[in-house]
């Protein structure tokens, strides 16, 4: 399922004294099966863009196509609900959405809202709990007695239980420790590879973008200023710094080598890519002896 934006504008509270334009003429495609990263400074319009992905808001101009559904400003709000099953959004600090008496009930909440039967929802809950790395003993516990990291996983399971085709993640690792971050990003990678899930990752962490994404969209003040594969987008370190975006650690390190005189065809973005490049250098040095 593709998601397409065609000349999308969005204005908050149009025709009032508080009017504020957030998105300007956005054109983008999130292809089925891709892993797209959306990056941009705070205030660039990332959250607004996100809310269009499952029709939580409608564009004030232009068209958003989600699969075979078309959303324009005049679209009736009544039938937008099924879209939210297809495109699941995990908001930042998702543990804030937990409310049920047990973990099992909370995970089943989403699917039940979309008409899934009680038994099916329960088995989905058990399945998704395992997917996020928690065992069945958690099912009957209250979500509020869990640790922060565990609560987050339960919340994510609750979104996965809706069996979306596209999974949108808004800073999913915010506030986690390095181990937690690693486990979480690896889990999403597994979902992407094993289940072919389309992933949209909104993040500040350029290393995650470099390690996982196959497509990057850069937003600034509501406009797309660059988009393409990570290789292309992260080539110019000065540009990244000027836009106040982070730089993948490997690229910034490689830049130091470049300043010493080393040459790279493309700046490597990960430790592995850098090691590969250096390997060539080491071999040459070995041959020179």
């Amino acid at each position: 399922m593709d998601i397409r934006f065609e000349q999308v504008d969005f204005t908050y509270q149009p025709n009032t004294p508080f009017e504020q334009r957030a998105l300007f003429d956005l054109n983008l495609t999130i292809e089925d099966g891709s892993y797209t990263a959306i990056v941009g400074h705070t205030g660039s319009g990332k959250s607004t863009l996100l809310q269009h992905l499952n029709a939580l808001v409608k564009p004030t101009k232009g068209t958003v196509r989600i699969g075979d559904r078309t959303i324009v400003p005049e679209t009736n709000n009544k039938n937008l609900k099924p879209i939210r099953k297809k495109v699941g959004i995990v908001f930042q600090f998702p543990e804030a959405q937990l409310f049920e008496e047990t973990v099992a009930k909370d995970i089943a909440f989403g699917p039940k809202n979309f008409g899934v039967s009680e038994e099916d929802a329960a088995s989905l809950a058990a399945e998704m709990l395992g997917l996020v790395g928690l065992d069945a003993s958690y099912l009957e516990r209250s979500p509020f007695e869990l640790s922060g990291g565990q609560m987050r996983r339960v919340a994510i399971a609750g979104v996965l239980a809706m069996e979306p085709e596209v999974l949108v993640l808004d800073e999913p690792t915010a506030g986690l420790d390095p181990q937690g971050r690693k486990e979480m990003m690896e889990m999403f990678q597994r979902l992407h590879e094993e289940r072919g899930m389309t992933i949209v990752l909104v993040t500040h962490l350029m290393d995650d973008v470099a390690n996982y994404a196959d497509h990057v969209i850069v937003l600034e003040k509501g406009k797309i200023v660059k988009s393409g594969i990570p290789q292309e987008v992260f080539q110019n370190i000065d540009w990244l710094k000027e836009k106040q975006l982070g730089v993948p650690t490997a690229a910034s390190f490689a830049e130091k080598l470049v300043n010493k005189g080393m040459n790279f065809d493309h700046l490597p973005l990960t430790a592995d890519a850098l090691a590969d490049e250096l390997l060539k250098g080491f071999k040459k040095a070995g041959e020179g002896q």
Binding site: R84, K85, F91, Q97, L98, F99, F114, G158, V159
Partner: peptide, 29 residues
Amino acid sequence: MNAQRARGVDFGEGNLIQKMKAVVPLLIP
């Protein structure tokens, strides 16, 4: 509200009982 709407909750729809039930996933968190 956004998070719960993304999970299929409809805050404005339905009769009074349904609207009241919809408030639970908002009030408890």
